[in-house]
Design a protein around this nucleic acid. Structure first.
Lengths: 239, 239
DNA sequence: GCGACCGGGTGACAGCCATCACTCGGTGTA
DNA sequence: TACACCGAGTGATGGCTGTCACCCGGTCGC
């Protein structure tokens, strides 16, 4: 039966077919069923705001499918995309555990299925189930790890070109498709969004991508980017 | 009895007088004694390298006293000081949990007492003791929280002056001493180190501090900084 | 068909700041 | 005493990139 937004909905965690591939969700049957009693499953359209930076933590979201962008912004209105969260990730865990305001905003950039767990239920879940607590600690470690990568990139890159090259290389590693002519990428972000990921302006992203094209390092056709000289990008990166 | 480096040594966690004030260590007697059986207490001089970025994780360090700087560096040799760790913090937990290389280097900047726990022992400790796991999750949440602050500062600040102003304000909040003439700070870092904290050069730090002094926003006497116009600093910060 | 809007491309220009090159004072060491 | 070394202060310079301005093509709604 077709579902809204063309998502493959799993209302039931126990029957979820992708669960074994999800570091957090891949827990013993008893733990999963305990989780099931406290979660609220929801399907959200693209552009849904899950939570906003500064808001008191209501609870956590488990991203079953679809992706979400995590952003932070200055009082001047400048926006920084901290990370694109992938399916399987737990969002808002650190703020929920500490009881401090969410440190970022989360917004779906695709139709997404999410499980929400209220703060009190989540905290009780962690204290009573050691497996859940351990998996949460792993999730938090992953988050810290990727935050640390972001800090390196923002703080150590010498030029904006280097940041952009690094971003492209990261994409190649994560979901690049090897072809005879190079690595093919689907980039579903606008120049504006890319700029917000590396802390620069749209114009600069446009110019840098043009330069990469001119130097035959990459080739752009619509939303497809073909990285022809991966080594050239790697040479620009010292971090 | 005087101890090396003038530290107040607590070989025994159960008898440790500062434990109640330490979010991680403040656990039930049974958990503390379990921790005691697997920890190795050591006293380290200033400048000790606890672990190095990229190294496979040997285990975690609990910082009992003294401070340590966490750094990451580029292949070009540029160094970024990610954070100054304070007493009570757990270092290396995320890498140890994930089994991935340490994401930063840790070096003591004062004589320090540390408890080391080997990776296998730590993982077993977490899985068998739910209180330990919960406290570790809290520590990881704190780490993620502060990493997120760093990302904001590095990615959203418009100018270097803004970053420096924000750093000074952070110091005022953390360990500033209110006096009639302003907030007094002890800054035990060189201009070079301050530069490494905000991702700029020593010369720029010198110039900006001179400018702040000229504008009577701060006053510097040796390692003492007196912040006379906190509001002026706050006005420069949009993040 | 027409206008609004959005994403993208480009030129001109200014300003911040990294870089290089000195100087200077204080401290420790031969 | 002389010297090396380190942290700090400062001037000159060039380049990157943020900002502003404008144009273009495609899409959508009316």
């Amino acid at each position: 039966m077709p579902s809204p937004y063309n998502l493959d909905i799993h209302n039931n965690c126990s029957d979820c077919t992708v669960r074994p591939n999800r570091p957090f969700c891949n827990m013993s049957p008893s733990t999963v069923s305990a989780l099931e009693t406290i979660k609220f499953t929801g399907v959200y359209p693209k552009g849904s705001l899950l939570f906003v930076e500064g808001e008191q933590p209501r609870g956590i979201f488990i991203l079953c499918s679809g992706r979400a962008k995590l952003t932070t912004s200055s009082t001047e209105g400048k926006v920084l995309i901290v990370r694109i969260a992938e399916p399987g990730e737990v969002l808002g865990a650190s703020a929920t555990i500490l009881g401090k305001p969410y440190e970022v905003s989360a917004e779906t950039i695709e139709p997404a299925q999410l499980n929400f767990v209220k703060r009190d239920d989540f905290l009780k879940f962690l204290t009573t189930d050691s497996e859940a607590c351990m998996h949460t600690a792993q999730q938090l470690s992953e988050k810290y790890h990727s935050a640390q990568r972001e800090i390196r990139s923002l703080g150590l890159a010498q030029t904006t070109g280097e940041k952009l090259a690094k971003l492209l290389l990261d994409w190649c590693d994560r979901d690049g498709e090897e072809t005879p002519k190079g690595v093919r990428l689907k980039v579903l972000l606008t120049h504006e969004e890319i700029a917000q990921m590396i802390g620069t302006t749209r114009e600069t992203v446009t110019r840098l991508l043009s330069e990469f094209k001119r130097r035959k390092v990459i080739d752009v056709k619509g939303s497809t980017v073909n990285v022809m000289q991966r080594e050239a990008l790697a040479e620009m990166v010292s971090i």
